[in-house]
Design a protein around this nucleic acid. Structure first.
Lengths: 173, 173
DNA sequence: ATGGCGTCCGTACCACAGTACGGAGTCAAG
DNA sequence: CTTGACTCCGTACTGTGGTACGGACGCCAT
């Protein structure tokens, strides 16, 4: 794979041209070399890898900001390996938290689906009943009516997890 | 639990006052009765349950739009249970996909951390090298370089709207 | 009756992650 | 040498899910 202009690089990485420029503006990727005289960006395989990495990390639920932190550590010559390591550890914890959360959600959904008759009018649909009034449900996973994860922190938002990605697959349902 | 004014209802449901009004505007909840003469919203336990439902469904990964659909299904006597079910199934698949990806990254991070010397300059740090260039890593978990989900569908713009937005980044406060 | 919350409403603003547009320049094929 | 596709850049706009603000008014206890 040779160096590619932006449109081909975008195709290759599975993003839009504008997205690449957007990442560049955000400092997630460097502006690539523009070979002699040409004002056109030309992307090396490494740079395309980096874009793919960004997508991958995003898929997993990291925000662009988090990804930037990860990447900027790499660029810091003063950075100590232990810093990177502890970031990695923190990310791992993060990942594990996310997995836990998703497991919860998953089992809840499974339970709901298992109990749902799957046909007939809504008057026999237990899914919505359960969702709407978990306390009275025979499905325990959602009856744990515990304190919902408090309303997201004021001012600063760093979550962006599940719903944030949803607009991309909106038609997935 | 008696009927509550908006602030107490919000506390009870674990959201902000503005969020309730926001849900109302979005049509996710009805405006509650305002008892004789009073212009104040008063929320019944049922309505609070509905707000909690919205939060719960959000936790599960439904967007507000999807939740709205779900709720309007509930209001539609002609709606079929199987519709709701298949929505839930789709969400479950979604969740499982995310879990898979996270497991990938999780094991990868573990492997990376295990291989990382943990001290010294970045020139000896293997973590970032591997993250950014999975293909050349001795840690295989990240090398799975599969096809990334295609770039999200393009929307067409067809309305010169007068618009509510200067998304200029203004640093106030 | 008055002070201090609580609430009303509308509008503006925020962060995030892009997407779209337009006018100008560039490049490669015919 | 023209033409059409591609690229440049900056700015505006989008959708999602809220938050914040401010003036006016309601409610209740002292």
């Amino acid at each position: 794979m040779r160096d590619l202009t932006i449109a081909k690089a975008a195709r290759e990485a599975g993003v839009g041209v504008e997205t690449i420029r957007f990442y560049e503006r955000r400092g997630l990727i460097d502006q690539p070399m523009k070979p002699q005289g040409s004002g056109f960006r030309v992307y090396s395989p490494e740079q395309i890898k980096r874009i793919k990495f960004i997508r991958q990390a995003q898929q997993i639920g990291f925000s662009l900001h988090e990804i930037q932190e990860l990447l900027s550590l790499r660029a810091d010559p003063a950075a100590d390996c232990s810093v990177v390591r502890s970031q990695a550890v923190a990310k791992l914890e993060d990942v594990n938290r996310k997995i836990d959360q998703l497991h919860h959600i998953g089992t809840a959904l499974e339970a709901l689906i298992a109990v749902c008759p799957g046909r007939g009018g809504l008057h026999v649909c237990t899914i919505l009943d359960t969702l709407i009034d978990p306390a009275h449900s025979r499905v325990p996973s959602l009856a744990a009516d515990g304190p919902l994860p408090a309303v997201p922190p004021k001012r600063k938002r760093q979550n962006g997890s599940i719903a944030a990605n949803n607009h991309k697959q909106r038609r997935a349902l």
